[in-house]
Design a protein around this nucleic acid. Structure first.
Lengths: 204, 204
DNA sequence: CCCAACATGTAAGGGGTTACATGATTTT
DNA sequence: AAAATCATGTAACCCCTTACATGTTGGG
């Protein structure tokens, strides 16, 4: 049900078309929650049927129309209910750790590349999130700007603080990943060095 | 395809029945990768059809039989191919951070509970993983024991080291989560204090 | 006039969850 | 004899991915 709540969250800022939502899921909010268009449009229709959002056709150019969705009272209530629920945790399913646990079967070169890729991936994400935090802090983020528009400064600060804090959590986790992967590079270097650098039981 | 590789990984240790696999997915390996029986049995059948594993019926009690699967050469190759591939990262989808980003809509009490639950969850996981590392280090883990049986000590150490390292990664990440959630408790305490401790725009 | 951006879908298939089912064997 | 464990499934449903598809509008 998180897709639904991600959509509600976005629509608490301002009315949006499916395409607006799609764009946000590719950048800003997409750094925390991603969804493709093929999921967004049908889900918005279902949410409208459930009364969580209301869609109105608005003119777009001469002949075109587009559908702009606004969150309803029922939508806000549903969103808040979700926020007030205790979180539920899925059982672990971690492909990275699964691989790491069996690197004795891998090629040492591939193991090094694996950890290097891990570092590169998380470094890139940190850059995205840092940039995101910057646009939140200076209020240049359009969705945030719309969200805090007309609100007293304390509320604006509070709203901003939670968003910044969420991205800081992403960064903290990514830093832990990078540190771990650096340890992985050391470990592979230590365990797989010299001539016997061949995977265990390799038929070759 | 990670379920398939998790199954192959397990079967590199020793032949197992579907039920053995299921038990391992509830404890040991399940702390990194979990799967329910309804996924395991059909997948094992598909893997047998694909020639990655071989099943043999073995007697069980007087009348009963059970099927014990062993990994084939093709299975080992497939597993190694996966380990040597570059990892692929899914787009972010983080329900915890999504919620945290919108806590201005939540009840302050619920926000505190949310972070408290987060700390409790990850603390419990750390205990699981620490215990797991202990059984790996002292070789009391039966799956590991079987895996390193008859292997020279350097290989045994190498095999153990990767598994320990994987669980250490889980722990490192969980510690980052706990630290973040503690920051969350502080933040909520700071932002939602005193009388105006009511969610934003709450109709009440 | 062309191209990028805007706008909105359908369809097949993979992976996972939850619930429902059943029966044999071993342990208490 | 009952209970726990071993053993193996089916079925409905949800969520998500990937690929395919189509048309409009605004800017250069």
């Amino acid at each position: 049900m998180s897709l639904r709540n991600a959509l509600l969250a976005m629509l608490t800022s301002q009315p949006m078309t499916g395409y607006d939502v799609y764009k946000n899921f590719q950048t800003s909010v997409g750094y925390v929650w991603h969804a493709p268009d093929s999921q967004i449009y049908p889900e918005l229709r279902r949410m409208e049927q459930d009364g969580l959002i209301r869609g109105e056709s608005v003119a777009w150019g001469k002949r075109g129309t587009k559908k702009r969705y606004s969150i309803t009272e029922a939508g806000v209530e549903s969103f808040q209910r979700w926020l007030n629920e205790p979180p539920d945790y899925q059982r672990e399913r971690d492909p990275i750790r699964l691989r790491a646990a069996y690197l004795e079967w891998a090629d040492p070169k591939a193991s090094m590349d694996f950890f290097t890729a891990h570092i590169a991936y998380h470094s890139a994400r940190i850059d995205d999130w840092k940039e995101m935090i910057r646009t939140l802090r200076d209020h240049s983020n359009p969705t945030l700007a719309k969200r805090i528009e007309g609100k007293p400064p304390e509320d604006a600060d509070r709203i901003t603080a939670y968003k910044v804090f969420a991205y800081e959590g992403m960064i903290a986790r990514a830093r832990a990943e990078i540190e771990w992967a650096e340890g992985g590079l050391d470990l592979v270097g230590k365990l797989e060095k010299t001539d016997q650098a061949k995977p265990l039981d390799d038929p070759q």
